[in-house]
Each structure stands twice: as structure tokens, then as C-alpha cells.
Amino acid sequence: MAQLTHFEKLMEALEKRLQYHFKDRTGLVRALTHRSAVPGDKVAHESYQRHEFLGDRVLALVVAEMLFKANDKADEGDLARRLNQLVRRETCAEIALELDLGDVIRLGTGERQSGGRRKEAILGDVMEAVIAAIYLDGGFEVAKDFVERNWAPHMQRLPGQLRDAKTLLQEWAQGRGHAVPTYETLERTGPDHAPVFTVAVLIDGAQVGTGTGKSKREAEQAAAAAALAERADG
């Protein structure tokens, strides 16, 4: 049996960390190749740039689904904020470091000498490119499994609770022996095509917060958030 080359050993070790064995490593190698390591006229085809583009979309879809399933009461704004935190370059770079991707990135001499293996921008881009390589080699379910396995711990560490203001206020009230909060529309202004609602939230008959919005639901959420803020300040 022929001995493995140093590069083949690096790829085998990486596959173990990724927990995926590639049928064809061509895509993986490309995902690990920075533009500084290839001639200028071949950057688009031999560097990770195209893979990064695809991996970014795969990552966003999988993380969005993870967040969507995590709690069916979270509103769109909360989900969007958390999605941005989880797919941003900083988080991708953290996970790249956890997987020791920096050790196997192919860099030009200048980037190697300037510490490119630990640069956040490069690590984040390579992480997305590797997701694309897994997707192209193994399919969506394999890529999804990889993202879920590596991003779930980061999702669980996000600050705050993944629940909407109305749910949190109800839990606060019931936890202290109060009645379930009720909502009352105080005012509706503006034209029919762009109304503005003002809503009050009441606990045990007493008004504890007000809010406005383009719909009753939005105004109720704003009122509940105002009530929670008041409780926190108190």
C-alpha cells in the first residue's frame, strides 16, 4: 500500500473533524484555497469565492430552519436578529477555529506571512466555502447535518429568550399569581390603507403598558414589551 502524502494526511484528518468523508475532494480543496494562492486569471474557478457564495445560502437556510423550529412563538424580528448573529462572519470564523480549518487553508506567501490562517475574514469565508463543498459532494441533508451539529451549541448560547413579548408577559403575570394579561384597543388613526393602532395591556384590570403598531398584533406586542420593560426597571 502506497504511503499517504502529507497533504492526503491533512485531508484525512480534516474529514474526521468535519465528520464527513468526501467522495471527491476537488471541491474541498477549492473551498480551502484563498485567492492569493492561485494565478489572477484562475481566481474565480480555483479559489473558494464561488463556494463561499453558495455556502452562505445553504448556511442561512439551515440556520433559519433551526431557529424556526426552536420556538414557534418567536416573532420575525427576534428570529431575524438571531439569524444574523449566527451566520455573521465572526461566528463562522469561531467555528472554523474550532475545526482547525486555519491549519489547512492554502494561502499565497504574502498571506501566510501576514497571519492569514488566523484572519477572521478568511476563516469566515472558508467556513462557508466548506459548507458548500459538503453540500455539492454529499447533498443537502449531509450539509444540513453538518451545520446543525456545529451551529447548535452557538445557538443555545445566544443571550435572551426566543419568545415573543406577549408570551413572556403572560408567563411573568401567571408566575406571580396574576390574571392572564388582556389587551384593549385605545385608538385607531390614519387612513384605511395605513392604519395605526394604539393598544393597552391590562393585568388584573390595571393598565401596565401601551404600544402602537400598523396592526393590532404589532401594537399588542409593543404594549407587552413596554410592560416588561417597566417591570424590569422596577
Rank of each mutant, 00 (worst) to 15 (best):
M1V: 10
A2Y: 08
L4D: 01
H6T: 14
H6W: 14
H6F: 13
M11H: 11
E12P: 01
A13D: 09
L14F: 11
E15D: 07
R17M: 11
K23C: 04
D24P: 07
D24S: 14
R25D: 01
T26R: 12
R30T: 15
A31C: 08
L32H: 12
R35P: 04
R35A: 06
A37K: 11
V38L: 06
V38E: 04
P39G: 05
V43I: 13
E46C: 05
E46T: 08
S47I: 02
Q49E: 13
R50P: 01
R50T: 15
R50G: 04
H51G: 12
F53I: 07
F53Q: 12
G55N: 02
D56L: 13
L59E: 11
L59Q: 15
L61D: 11
L61G: 02
A64G: 13
L67Y: 03
L67D: 05
N71R: 14
D72K: 13
K73G: 11
D75P: 10
G77K: 02
G77H: 09
D78Q: 14
A80M: 07
R81N: 06
R82P: 01
L83V: 09
R89D: 15
E90S: 12
C92K: 15
A96Y: 06
L97H: 10
E98M: 08
L101E: 09
L101H: 07
V104W: 07
I105F: 03
T109A: 09
G110I: 06
E111G: 00
R112H: 08
R112Y: 09
Q113E: 15
S114Y: 12
G116T: 11
K119S: 06
E120Q: 15
A121T: 10
G124K: 14
D125A: 10
D125M: 04
V130E: 06
A132E: 03
A133P: 02
Y135N: 08
L136R: 12
L136K: 13
G139V: 08
V142P: 05
K144V: 03
D145W: 10
V147P: 11
E148Y: 02
R149F: 06
R149I: 04
A152T: 15
Q156M: 15
L158R: 14
L158E: 03
P159V: 10
G160T: 10
Q161L: 11
T167H: 11
T167R: 09
L168E: 03
Q170K: 11
A173S: 09
A173I: 09
R176Q: 05
G177T: 06
H178Y: 15
V180G: 01
V180L: 02
V180T: 07
Y183G: 00
E184Y: 10
E187L: 03
R188D: 01
T189E: 15
P191S: 00
D192H: 07
D192R: 10
H193Q: 05
A194G: 04
P195R: 02
V196Q: 02
F197I: 06
T198M: 07
A200C: 13
V201M: 08
V201A: 07
G205C: 06
G205D: 01
G209R: 04
T212L: 00
T212M: 12
G213K: 05
G213C: 05
K216W: 04
R217V: 03
Q221P: 00
Q221M: 10
A222P: 05
A223C: 07
A223Y: 02
A225M: 13
A226E: 11
A226C: 13
A227R: 04
A227L: 06
E230W: 08
E230M: 13
R231C: 00
R231P: 00
A232Q: 03
A232G: 01
A232P: 01
D233F: 05
G234D: 13
